[in-house]
Design a protein around this nucleic acid. Structure first.
Lengths: 249, 249
DNA sequence: AGCGTTTAATTGCATATGCAATTGAAGAGG
DNA sequence: CCTCTTCAATTGCATATGCAATTAAACGCT
């Protein structure tokens, strides 16, 4: 932890002190200023830097630990945690992980790639107001050689410029983005649709068969990152979740 | 808060004191011993009862408040919170609420009711090992007079005996259960299926059209409460959720 | 170098204390 | 009866202090 890093912790004067500290550190993590693995200053250092008591700093860090943003160990100190790969029913972000978790062999194929200006539906989807440069990809994912899910994706080059050079030969675009971009907000929608002729052919099912459509849009600090439509053959897939009346108590 | 109520708070000696207190009170709430609206003893009363300092009691109650199980107000005190009606994407438990939230007029009709022993699929669904007494219901819900969702439900009479006498004329079974039973765990699954002939007719769609199928099973402290299958016409419905990489930060 | 022991950095927990903020309830005054 | 003021119950926040638990790193011994 360098001096510049600890100096980055700045309070805003709004609300309780412990919460100012919590939000200050949380924002550094969510903004990417303190990426996963960063060593957070020890309590007594923050205490001196911020002029707060140790218990107050401790309270702020304790809450961040409970929220999962940091992990703490006695003597070793506090480090920024890695975001969990998936943390709820629909937050399956890595299709290879999903397929291997089901006990199947994973493979994928890029069916098409077109770089250029976003088409009108994409512009509307992200409420952009103007056409921007994007990468458009169509990917078919296989489980044990059988088509598993059809992916159509748009990546925004303004937010993720490195995508222009990437060929996605070793790693599918969804996983590549997880490693090479930040995201702070996502929205997904799930619905049932009938497979169109070309989709059905790719997925090796009949035209008109029911499919589960998962659409996800992702932003980082308000800037669009990517949008993806995942089409799962209906008969073979269910999404399962567990919860209690007050949440996951 | 009577003496018997405060005496119900019992510590188990495992782990940190503040967490023992938190779990003790949490369990009283989750078990239904302290239903929503119950007045929780003030900090100084718990402090005397448990022999802990006020700060330690405060820490336990503070965490429960953050978890949403209690609400606290200065001077007024602490009361057990009502479980939120819906708290995430798929936790739409009240169909009337869902329909009215979309700005439509709600109505429903009980299409069929059969009481008796559970059929084999239900026995398997809840891993019961033997047939038990259940109520089986088929309900069609309408939004502005248009079929909205088809509900097939099984209610376990051993866990919810009052269901036997209820006719569900004023309130649909899902909402009646919310008011007349407790649940501690739920599991849901979502998938896409083709509408069968009879289902399609009821929903006023074509046979084979894609539908979103939500299946939910509910338990209270390990005892089965209800199972429901909700069939939504695919084209008209999407479930939407928002989240961040570390959860809902 | 390898191995056990000691040290010390860091977090975790609990207490005691004091004051601030909120607000229901009691009381005062008309 | 109504309104305004005062009081006090209750939670919220911050500090100071002390000790316990964990464990990486330093040390010392062979």
């Amino acid at each position: 932890m360098s001096a510049s890093q600890i100096d980055a912790v700045a309070l805003d004067g709004a609300g309780p002190l412990y919460d100012q500290i919590r939000r200050a550190i949380r924002d550094l993590i969510l903004n990417g200023a303190w990426p996963p693995g960063t060593v957070v200053p020890p309590e007594h250092a923050l205490m001196e830097r911020l002029g707060a008591s140790r218990m107050t700093v401790h309270r702020a860090l304790g809450q961040l630990a409970r929220e999962g943003l940091i992990t703490r160990r006695r003597r070793s100190g506090t480090i920024v945690a890695s975001p969990p790969a998936s943390h709820a029913m629909l937050d399956i972000l890595s299709i290879p992980e999903e397929v291997r978790g089901l006990g199947h062999e994973y493979s994928y194929r890029i069916l098409a790639r077109r770089d250029g200006r976003a088409l009108r539906p994409v512009v509307a989807l992200f409420e952009l107001g103007r056409a921007v440069e994007v990468v458009r990809l169509t990917v078919l994912h296989y489980a044990d050689g059988v088509p598993h899910v059809l992916e159509e994706r748009v990546i925004h080059l303004a937010t993720v410029p490195a995508a222009e050079q990437e060929q996605f030969v070793a790693i599918p675009p969804g996983d590549w983005l997880l490693q090479n971009s930040l995201w702070s907000q996502a929205e997904h929608a799930i619905s049932a649709v009938a497979a169109e002729a070309d989709q059905a052919k790719l997925l090796a099912i009949g035209e008109g068969e029911p499919c589960l459509l998962v659409e996800r849009r992702t932003w980082n600090q308000g800037d669009p990152v990517t949008a993806v439509r995942l089409l799962y053959p209906g008969g073979r897939h269910r999404f399962v979740g567990r919860f209690g009346p007050y949440g996951n108590v």
